[in-house]
Design a protein around this nucleic acid. Structure first.
Lengths: 161, 161
DNA sequence: ACATAAAGCGCAGTTAACTGCGCTTTATGT
DNA sequence: ACATAAAGCGCAGTTAACTGCGCTTTATGT
């Protein structure tokens, strides 16, 4: 990665840099699961522990808890069901709601997956050279973005002159 | 974003968090360009200034400079050409190489785009509450990842026991 | 009680990155 | 000099998020 303009620009091309790192992590995780012969995808763990903690949780609740759109949750959940990790059913009391529950397969596989995630936690700590201050920076960035978006802020600033 | 598990997990779900922030920035940038009625996409600016600085630059060189794969550069460049921002031609001396040059349209539009980016720089500074230390954390993270990937590190750690 | 609004999906399409593969052209080793 | 390796694309397909839209079901206001 010599001569990397994005790198050189520092925080200017922040979006591109964040995406690049995130992609690297995700692709690598996917590959790791394959090598370990676990038929699971990167974000499934989050969904699994959420359902484990709250059985009968709905699409919208999962979306809210994980910060995804409900459409993303549906796509993920359908794949998980196809792979035998999820039971998807309709709420009897509210026919609009779709609810999730773990299957025997996912209950059986959870300990192994949790082991991988515990190790992943250590690895990320290592990758950050033991300094987790980055989460504070991300927190600030996210909460500022939640108030006024990047684009709006630029437009506001441009209009000042 | 209340009850956000990803948030709660701190640096464990780092990949997801980084992607989420990056996506927000990118979507917002795209929307901003639309509102400002500039027919350009988020990363084009990087390509444009690169070609401005080094006319006749090739696909592979742009890829290396921006840290993208060559395929991404080709896709981006074709879109830019379709929108009149780029002249794509073949190198006469090395027929394998495809080289890029700016069109009159892009030369004319560059000052306006640069203005937006300058403002964008200020906005990111603002979004980070004036603390750009995050770039140092990203630097460390990236350089560590370049040496041994996330997945490999996990497998190595799992094999230790 | 019934029209209208809100909630909760789910389908279709988009985005910016990626990998895999195969093709042409140039460089290199004996 | 010629086979083989390397460089440089470019097409096809994948990924994980997204937006837009429309449908059904439930909640709410008069």
């Amino acid at each position: 990665m010599e001569n990397d303009l994005v790198h050189e620009l520092g925080y200017i091309a922040l979006a591109t840099r964040l995406k690049r790192i995130s992609d690297k992590l995700t692709y690598s995780t996917r590959l790791m699961y394959k090598k370990l012969d676990i038929d699971i995808e990167p974000n499934w763990y989050l969904v699994l522990i959420l359902i484990k903690e709250t059985p009968n949780i709905s699409v919208m609740e999962v979306a809210k808890n994980l910060g995804f759109t409900h459409q993303s949750v549906i796509t993920m959940a359908n794949k998980m069901r196809d792979n035998g990790y999820l039971k998807i059913s309709k709420d009897i009391n509210d026919k609009r709601r779709t609810i999730f529950n773990l299957t025997i397969k996912s209950i059986e596989k959870l300990p192994q997956i949790e082991e991988v995630w515990k190790t992943g936690k250590k690895v990320i700590y290592e990758l950050l050279n033991g300094d987790t201050a980055i989460t504070k920076h991300l927190e600030i960035l996210e909460s500022n973005l939640d108030q006024i978006s990047f684009g709006e802020r630029i437009i506001n600033k441009l209009n000042q002159y």
